[in-house]
C-alpha cells in the first residue's frame, strides 16, 4: 500500500508528472481556445488558479459535512460561484482582456480539472494538501497553456506578449493563430511529450532489467 501523497508531493506532482494538459488531458477547451497569445493564456491560467484554489480550500473545509450523493451539487455550486466572482473581477479591472477571453471564463465551471481535483483530492484531504494540490495543478496547467501559446504566437505573428521578436522577413504563419493551428500545435507538442516520457520509461526499464 503506497502512502497518500503529502502536501509537497502533491504540489510537485501537479506541475509535470500529473500535468493536467499533457498527462491527464483535462481542460482541453481553454487550452485550444485562449492560447493564440501569451497574455490571454497567462490570464486564463491565473483565473483557473484562483478558482481552483478557492474551490479546493472551501470543499476541503466542508468535506466532513458533505453527503455522498449531494457532493457533486455542492462542488458545482462552489465552483460556479467562484467563477462568477472571477468573471466580474476581470470585467471590472481587465476589461479588454475580459472581452478577448469572452465566453471561456464562464466555461471554467465545466473545466474537468477543477471538478476532478475537488472530487479526488479536496473532498478527502486536509486543507493544506488541497491547497498545495490546487497550486501545483494550476502551475501545471499554466505551463501547458504557455507552451502552446508561445509557439502559436511566435510562429503566427512573430510576437511574444505583443512585442515583435522575429525579424520582419518572417512571413507570419497566420494559420497558427486560427483554430487549425491550435490543434496542430497541441497535437505535435503532445506527441513530443509522449516521446520523451516513453524514452524515459524504456531507459528505466532497460536499466532495471540489466541489474
Amino acid at each position: 500500500m503506497t502512502a497518500e501523497p503529502t502536501a509537497p508531493e502533491r504540489f510537485i506532482r501537479g506541475i509535470l508528472p500529473e500535468n493536467p494538459t499533457y498527462r491527464q488531458l483535462l481542460g482541453l477547451c481553454p487550452t485550444l481556445a485562449v492560447t493564440n497569445n501569451m497574455k490571454s493564456a497567462l490570464t486564463m491560467a491565473g483565473a483557473v488558479l484562483f478558482v481552483l484554489f478557492c474551490a479546493n480550500v472551501m470543499v476541503s473545509l466542508i468535506r466532513n459535512l458533505l453527503k455522498p450523493h449531494l457532493r457533486i451539487v455542492a462542488f458545482t455550486l462552489v465552483i460556479a460561484a467562484f467563477v462568477t466572482i472571477v468573471d466580474r473581477l476581470l470585467a471590472a479591472y481587465m476589461y479588454t482582456m475580459s472581452k478577448n477571453l469572452g465566453p471561456y471564463i464562464p466555461l471554467i465551471i465545466v473545466n474537468c480539472i477543477i471538478i476532478g481535483r475537488c472530487e479526488i483530492c479536496a473532498s478527502k484531504e486536509s486543507v493544506l494538501k488541497a491547497a498545495s494540490d490546487a497550486i501545483g495543478q494550476s502551475i501545471g496547467f499554466g505551463i501547458g497553456l504557455s507552451s502552446i501559446a508561445f509557439f502559436r504566437e511566435i510562429i503566427g505573428t512573430g510576437m511574444v506578449f505583443g512585442t515583435r521578436v522575429l525579424p520582419q522577413i518572417w512571413p507570419d504563419w497566420v494559420i497558427m493563430i486560427l483554430p487549425p493551428g491550435a490543434f496542430f500545435t497541441f497535437g505535435l507538442l503532445l506527441g513530443s511529450v509522449n516521446y520523451m516520457v516513453n524514452r524515459k520509461n524504456t531507459s528505466i526499464k532497460n536499466r532495471d532489467s540489466m541489474k
Binding site: I62, L66, V73, A74, I85
Partner: peptide
C-alpha cells in the same frame, strides 16, 4: 441532507 446545499446557496447568493 439538503441543509448544507441550501446554506451554500444562501452564502453564495449573498456574496
Amino acid at each position: 441532507q439538503g441543509w448544507l446545499v441550501i446554506l451554500l446557496c444562501l452564502v453564495f447568493g449573498g456574496s
